[in-house]
Design a protein around this nucleic acid. Sequence first.
DNA 1: TAAGCGTGGAT
DNA 2: TATCCAAGCTT
Length: 342
Amino acid sequence: MDDRVSTQLLNWYDRNARSLPWRALPGEKAPDPYRVWLSEVMLQQTTVAAVKPYFQKFTQKWPTVQDLAAASDEDVMAAWAGLGYYSRARNLAKCAREVAEIGGFPENEAALLKLPGLGAYTAAAVAAIAFGKRAVVVDANVERVVARLFAITEPLPAARKVIREATDTITPTERSGDFAQAMMDLGATICTVRDPKCLLCPLSVDCRAKEAGDPTELPKKAPKKQRPERLGRAFWIEQNSKVWLVRRPGTGMLGGMRALPDDGWSARSDGHGEPPLAGDWESFGAIRHVFTHFGLTLELRAVTDLAKQPEGDGEWWPIEQLEEAGLPTAFAKAASLALARK
DNA sequence: TAAGCGTGGAT
DNA sequence: TATCCAAGCTT
């Protein structure tokens, strides 16, 4: 049934492919590797809807990988603000410089895998989509489709190896990039987590989960542990219509991003509560934000009458232009508390 | 292998 | 409101 699966799927894709900004239109030549790579990195654990405006912004600002390679870390991080998983932005800039240095993207999967920010999925996807290489592309969509197609009942993540092997058996030699995108489109629009549209599925004839009854039972997943809660404080230090912003350390939580000074909630459990300098601090309320591995209540404390200047690595930022600072969402929410007071 | 790492939309 | 989840990578 292997050939039938890929044939059916590619026929379906020819009629139903989603039109996306980083895709070549049907009949066009292969898409620009830079755009493929950029979109794939942005799409890591991120929805198509969230990526679209960022992809537009980045390709407008930096039309080629050479342009991106020439950009400062600061500008790249600020442009990425709000998209999440900020190590992607750090690696994006690093990768662009490596690629520009060697004169273009490597075309084979093994070489792509060595670039920063490209793991098994992204290296395979770029090799297949941008360079027409046969590669076994497995993302969360493919995991779901394949687990159902082959009725693989072992829970994730342990099932990854078996799922990859099964995907290998149905990946065609020709058009493996289209095949990968077709699998992802199918997973996103037909073979969905809840309420799969089996009546519209080009693979339903071969689907063992459908045959067994309820495809939504697959893939099984290991239970996840509950999310702890933390309490932290951010500090609004204002003077002459400017606010004091710091640059967070290059690695770890929100690494490399501009931020309000805080009391260390990201590096420990609760923050220590101590403001960065002495003064007459006032409470501006609190916001709530949920990260992947903990929930945060973030109190905002403010001082506008400075006894002495803040010290260390930071900058006075015009409050009128706070949008352009590129604050990650938790701090952007906190800042909105201060702005609401004006 | 498991944990750390964001965010917003859907349900 | 709470939970789940998305075109995963790094250490």
